[in-house]
Amino acid sequence: MRLPPFLKRLFGRTPRPAAGPSPCDSCPLAACAAGSRATVLCIVCPAHDAHRLRTLGLFEGVTVGVVDTRSGLVLDVRGSRLALGAAIAAGITVQPLRA
């Protein structure tokens, strides 16, 4: 899908990071770019939220895709789309994978 520039500015995503070795070993999930993939290292959040996330298939060691980062986060977890508020995304530490 090709968008004219003005639409691209309105609707477009932040550009992917350049391919190559990942720039860091760990960073907050919220800092990942849309379109990248990352492995969850650590989840810091209230117990009930952590339980919910685990039920939905998101826990340490799982690799997720980052779909959307514009407001909150939309993740690709095992093929389903999981929407997370910004607060929870900030508590998840991941290791970005090479794009």
Binding site: C45, D49, G72, V74, L82, L84, G85, I88
Partner: peptide, 10 residues
């Protein structure tokens, strides 16, 4: 206020 965790169905 609890954080938002929800599935977006297709």
């Amino acid at each position: 206020t609890r954080a938002l965790i929800m599935e977006l169905p297709r």
